[in-house]
Simulated scan of single mutants.
Amino acid sequence: MSLLQKLIERARKTPGKKIVFPEGNDPRVVLAAERIAEEGIAVPILLGTEAEIDRVSAEDGIDDKKFHAFDHLKSEMLDRFASEFCLFRKRKNMTHEKGLEIVRNRLFFGAMMVRHGFADGMVAGSLASTAETLRAAITVIGLKEGVKTLSGSFFMDLKTPTAFGGKVLLFADCGVNPNPDSEQLAEIAVLSAGHFRFICGEKPRIAFLSFSTHGSAGDDSISKIRNAIPMTMEKLRASGIEADVDGELQADSALVSEVAKRKCKNEVIEGNANVLIFPDLNSGNISYKLVERLAGASAYGPILQGLAKPVNDLSRGCSVDDIVGVSAITVCQCG
């Protein structure tokens, strides 16, 4: 069974969760929302004007809409949301007029719906950039208590299993932090481990990736990776998450046991990693796209790790299946 099917079945066990999709003007989102409603995954709420929703639905050949369409620009909640926005942004000299202008933005309006409980979670980013989605999520939703570093992970459903038979890997950070330091890498690893266990139900085996394996190369850029490992172990113990951690490792040492045996005698995960932590955003983002586009993997994300409430991003190159998968993960996060 594919990861997508597993996610859908799990989401169905918590029926009635409302997920807001700010980009109701995207044909892919409309198709995904119709499928989400039909399959009982969630109650989709699409933001858009009546003309937008009708036009896109006609393009998709949808006559009998099963999703909920909501014109946020005509909503009575605009004034309430603007007033609320001014309250928590008062240090920014926010006026009601400025607040009203901001919450008219569909991303901010959707985030405000989640903040106030009118929706359980939000999925956005099929048209908006990650930066735009993050800005709305961080401003309106904020981080969980104790979290300092927001990050973005991808669940990679592999077409060809790893040497150990693993079908699903988690890649992080692939969407948020350009050049995380040791402390940030450690927090990314711990949040990723928690997400992997929550979604996949398996023990996380974390590999900190590099061009070096256990000191085979020397460079200042590797120091932050090595320093992150003991920090990660300490944070995992404090969080009560049981996981294996190793690094720095080249990708083949992390994923192929025969290579791991040759390159490092004391590798903890023995070539059977399932959570891959990349040293920077360049390597993480490039890697997930290569695995998706050239190896045929399905990539679900970026799943935003560390927010106070479920808000998840999409790649602008996402498919309908991708949107459905991220939505199912969002439902699972809603509890």
Rank of each mutant, 00 (worst) to 15 (best):
Q184H: 11
S151E: 07
V168L: 01
A137V: 15
T14R: 08
D244C: 01
N282Q: 02
A186G: 13
V147P: 02
I269P: 07
V259T: 13
I102P: 03
T95M: 12
K261I: 09
G306A: 13
R237D: 15
M156T: 09
P15C: 00
M77D: 15
G99F: 00
I277S: 10
K289Q: 12
E187S: 06
G175T: 03
A251Q: 03
C318P: 03
I141R: 03
L281C: 07
P279M: 04
A186V: 07
L78E: 06
S257M: 11
I199F: 12
L46M: 03
I329E: 14
P204L: 10
K309M: 13
G325T: 07
D79L: 12
V256G: 05
K13F: 05
E9P: 07
V29H: 08
T49A: 08
K92P: 00
A51M: 14
K144Y: 09
P15T: 01
K289F: 10
N105S: 10
E39I: 02
P302V: 04
I188A: 10
A295G: 00
R91Q: 14
C174P: 03
I303S: 05
A137N: 12
G110W: 07
A308Y: 04
S287R: 01
S223I: 13
G284K: 04
F70E: 14
D26M: 08
D321H: 07
L169E: 02
P230R: 08
V331E: 10
Y288C: 02
T139H: 00
I269D: 13
L150N: 11
K66E: 15
L185Y: 04
F88Q: 14
G61N: 02
V176K: 00
E183S: 14
N179F: 11
L143V: 10
R197N: 10
F278H: 05
R316Q: 13
F85T: 08
V43F: 06
P22H: 04
L281M: 08
S126I: 02
T162H: 02
C318Y: 01
I303K: 01
S253W: 11
V20N: 08
E38P: 00
P230Q: 09
T162Q: 06
E187F: 05
M77E: 15
L78F: 00
V326D: 05
R316P: 12
I138K: 09
V291H: 09
N105P: 06
G121P: 04
A128K: 00
V326M: 03
S192E: 14
K13S: 15
D79C: 01
M113I: 00
G40W: 05
A254G: 04
R115D: 12
L169C: 02
A58M: 04
S327Q: 14
G16L: 12
S182H: 03
P302G: 05
P302T: 02
F70H: 14
L170S: 11
L158N: 12
K309V: 04
L31E: 15
K18C: 05
V256W: 05
A128R: 00
M113L: 10
L307S: 14
E267G: 15
